[in-house]
Design a protein around this nucleic acid. Structure first.
Length: 193
DNA sequence: CTGCCGATTTAC
DNA sequence: TAAATCGGCAGA
């Protein structure tokens, strides 16, 4: 399947966020390929977006990757225990990214189930399956994505995104858990299937 | 250096 | 409904 190249990511963050729906995230490891279809994204649009870590040009060791070229992984630790996986978008200096908020397993469900729940996929309850990766922390756990992959080039061979399934319809809503972001709180920058 | 708090998840 | 849990960031 076709890997997305730099030009895909170096576009408007809202467009990238929408077009990422249905695409496949691939984490290639010695244990195999962890593959998930993206079902939920949120756009964080640079220095003018009060919900974005790069708001007001805040350039710190953590946000540095966001200010780089599009098509790199921005991965950070949240609440001291969960990772969030983002795709850096637009041109260098923009400070924009798309948060991958949810997905469903596509291939190698067993190794992902082991990473997520510590048990094989066919042992999972209906609830386990429903909650497999319907949140950014859960998705990272299932894909075995951790902070050491921060800054990884998504046009490389370790962590990348492939063409996936065609998505004809999707929903739009407010971004989750950014109540502090004043007017930006109401932007409809969350997209989900 | 100190102190607060978060783009969450899970258990009670 | 609230605890878990700690790195990042701002302010002193």
């Amino acid at each position: 399947m076709m890997k997305l190249d730099r030009s895909f990511y170096e576009r408007d963050t809202l467009i990238v966020a929408k077009e990422l729906l249905g695409k496949y995230i691939v984490h290639s490891t010695p244990q195999g390929r962890y593959v998930m279809k993206i079902t939920e994204t949120e756009a964080y649009k640079g220095t003018r977006d009060k919900a974005c870590h790069a708001y007001n040009g805040r350039l710190t060791p953590r946000t540095k990757v966001m200010f780089g070229k599009g098509g790199f992984a921005y991965i950070y630790l949240i609440y001291g225990m969960y990772c969030c996986f983002n795709v850096v978008t637009e041109k260098e200096g923009s400070g924009s990214a798309v948060l991958i908020r949810g997905g469903v397993p596509v291939e190698n469900k067993n190794i992902m189930s082991m990473a997520r729940y510590g048990m094989p996929y066919d042992k999972l309850s209906k609830n386990n399956i429903k909650n497999f990766a319907n949140g950014p922390g859960k998705l990272c756990k299932a894909l075995d994505i951790h902070k050491s992959l921060n800054g990884e080039d998504l046009t490389g061979n370790k962590l990348y995104i492939e063409e996936g399934e065609k998505v004809s319809r999707f929903n739009t809503g407010k971004r989750i858990n950014i109540d502090y972001a004043e007017e930006a709180r109401d932007f409809l920058w969350r997209f989900y299937i």
